[in-house]
């Protein structure tokens, strides 16, 4: 089948404004959008720029807007998006070139919630034990691959990059509800500020966009509730 890829193009060295360029390709319905981008870059237009790394939905490098919705190009099949595909960079982050955005503001927000293990307890001889039930409490939020699909689908983040965004809250949730960690109160305080969870308007774009199917809005809701009640249920 013939597929038309309409791709957002912008070269800061030559273009004043972004534009769209269409490419016609011969494709199979089981091809992924990433395969077609590779074909364009390899055979039609070597100037096309986009990020990719593992190409198997693990590294989270190739998040982009495909037919108007955030997805990973390596997990999106042509049969699911049709023969006319529009590919654009994710929203809310500065576009550096074509489909490549500056991820630094996203990672700044991520770091602001201290997404690492904090404890004052001395290091044990072996591992820190945890019951399966305690581990299951935050299992869903351990799946995040930091692709930014969620944060850049959030209208609150589009409005202000100071909002930490869904991905940072997911990372915080992973440690807040980990019974081995001792900095939950500190993280909840950070997320209780004006740039924290209260900017979430329960829109669900993040949950719909997550390629790992994490229940992001639920995680944000649990953090909101922990802030309100002071209880880590």
């Amino acid at each position: 089948m013939e597929v038309t890829l309409k791709i957002f193009r912008y070269n800061p060295e030559t273009d004043k404004k972004p534009s769209y360029k269409s490419y016609k390709l011969d494709a199979n319905e089981m091809d992924r959008v990433l395969d077609l981008l590779e074909k364009v870059k390899g055979y039609q237009d070597g100037t096309l720029s986009f990020r990719r790394s593992c190409a198997h939905g693990i590294c989270g490098s190739d998040a982009m807007r495909i037919n108007g919705m955030n997805r990973l190009a390596c997990k999106t099949l042509i049969r699911d998006v049709g023969t006319r595909v529009t590919v654009e960079p994710i929203l809310g982050l500065p576009v550096l070139k074509d489909l490549i955005v500056d991820m630094e503001p996203f990672f700044d927000n991520f770091r602001s919630v201290k997404p690492w293990f904090i404890t004052a307890d001395p290091e044990p001889e072996k591992e820190r034990y945890q019951s399966p039930e305690a581990r299951a409490r935050f299992d869903d939020t351990t799946k995040c691959i930091l692709c930014a699909c969620c944060t850049t689908s959030c209208p609150s983040f589009w409005g202000s990059e100071k909002y930490v965004g869904p991905a940072a809250i997911v990372a915080a949730h992973r440690f807040i509800f980990d019974d081995r960690d001792q900095a939950a109160a500190e993280r909840l305080q950070i997320l209780n500020e004006a740039t924290g969870v209260h900017r979430c308007h329960t829109i669900f774009n993040c949950t719909m966009a997550c390629p790992r199917e994490i229940q992001i809005t639920k995680a944000i809701g649990e953090v909101k509730m922990a802030i309100s009640t002071g209880i880590l249920d």
């Binding site: 800061p12 108007g68 503001p105 589009w158 829109i203 719909m208």
Partner: peptide, 19 residues
């Protein structure tokens, strides 16, 4: 690069579906 601004057009074009 391009600024991060999200226009009303971009906002309305995002396919967030029912929610």
């Amino acid at each position: 690069g391009l600024k991060r601004d999200v226009s009303l057009k971009d906002f309305l074009r995002y396919k967030g579906k029912g929610p």
